[in-house]
Every structure is written in structure tokens, then in C-alpha cells.
Write a protein that binds this DNA or RNA. Structure first.
Lengths: 89, 89
DNA sequence: TAAACACATGAACAATTATTCATATGAAAG
DNA sequence: CTTTCATATGAATAATTGTTCATGTGTTTA
């Protein structure tokens, strides 16, 4: 149980993944757009998206050739916001 | 900013530290008591407590020979609880 | 069907990090 | 003052993990 909790927080505990989640908190986005915004390779982003997908923190659906990613639910956004609150205190 | 956020979550993203924080959420505790509860060495616990202290997630004060640790503020407990809520859904 | 585009993924490397072992510090008891 | 108890810490090791490179899969367009 507490191990599962650690696994959850571990996903938020990487700056790349935090940035991805933040970008997605502003709306759906494709893989290459995320890569552009973060100035990182498509591969690096795709690898991280896979982890986020596997833990159901993001969901995705295909539109033609592109995949659109989004936050899985409100919970993820809440965790992000609450972390930010803690930072800026 | 998002990097600071990742650094914060990184601290929750380790099962040992999660367990330590959980134990402390039930009240003040000494280093050796934490080590006993988690069946880990005093040294391992002490190293982790140092990280938690440096990030002000826990505070401590000395009573004689023993050091009593506690959660730094309500915020830490809230983060823990919110993570748990997410797990059990 | 072949080429182009968007994304996924396996393997390898580099960097980070949790634990152990040995030892140091600091307080209390004798 | 010396010993003992509780904790802290430096160095080393082992394990985890993020990124890169090369390549594979799936979809559209010519």
C-alpha cells in the first residue's frame, strides 16, 4: 500500500514528467508538440508518456497519424496543484 | 518551478521515505523506533531522515540522547492522504 | 504499393541514488 | 573522565532510471 503510494509519487518525481503533465493540464497535446515545447527528443517524451500511460495518469487517442494525450482525470491535476501550493508557501 | 515540484515529489517517491512519513503521521518518533518498525538499519533511516529534514518535510528536537522526529506541517500529511485517496479508487 | 510522417520501443550508456559498513559526534551514566 | 547509548555521516557498492540511437509499427498520401 505504502509502496504503491511511493510508485505513484515517483512518477511525479521527475522534472520531465512534471513538465509533460503541466503541459497536458492546459489541454490535449500531441507527442511532437510536447517535445517541441520542452525542447526534447520525440523518443525521450514517448518513453515517459509510456510510463504515465501505464500508471493511468494520462490517456490518449489517435487522430489520423497523431496521438493526442491528455490527463487521465481531475485527480492528477489536483496532485499537481497541491504540490505547487506547497512549493509557493 | 516545475523542477522544484519534481524535487518535492521525488521525496515522496521512495517507499522507505513514504513509510517513515506514514509512521510520523501517527505521532512523534525516535530514529531507532522507526528503524524497528520498518525492520531497517538505523543508518539507512538516518540517511533518509536527513533528506526529509533538508527539505523541511520533517522537523526534530532532542530529548536527552534521543532525537524525536515529526512531520513538519499539515501540508505533508495532506499530500500523503491525497496520494492514498488516489490509490484506493 | 511505395514513400512519408507520427509515434513506439529495445538496447546501451550515463547518471542518480538507496543501502551498507565503518566511524564520528553528542549526551548521559557510572 | 571513561563508557555507553542514540544518532549522524562519509565512502563504497549495487541497483534503478532517464536519455540517446537505431529501428519498428501504424497511418496517410502520392
Amino acid at each position: 500500500m505504502l509502496c504503491d503510494l511511493a510508485e505513484l509519487f515517483k512518477l511525479f518525481g521527475d522534472s520531465t514528467r512534471c513538465k509533460i503533465l503541466y503541459v497536458l493540464s492546459e489541454g490535449e497535446c500531441s507527442v511532437s508538440d510536447i517535445a517541441d515545447v520542452l525542447s526534447m527528443t520525440q523518443s525521450a517524451i514517448s518513453h515517459q508518456l509510456r510510463l504515465l500511460r501505464q500508471s493511468r495518469l494520462v490517456r490518449c487517442h489517435r487522430i489520423g497519424k497523431t496521438m493526442l494525450y491528455a490527463l487521465a482525470d481531475e485527480h492528477v491535476q489536483t496532485i499537481l496543484k497541491m504540490g505547487m501550493d506547497h512549493i509557493s508557501e
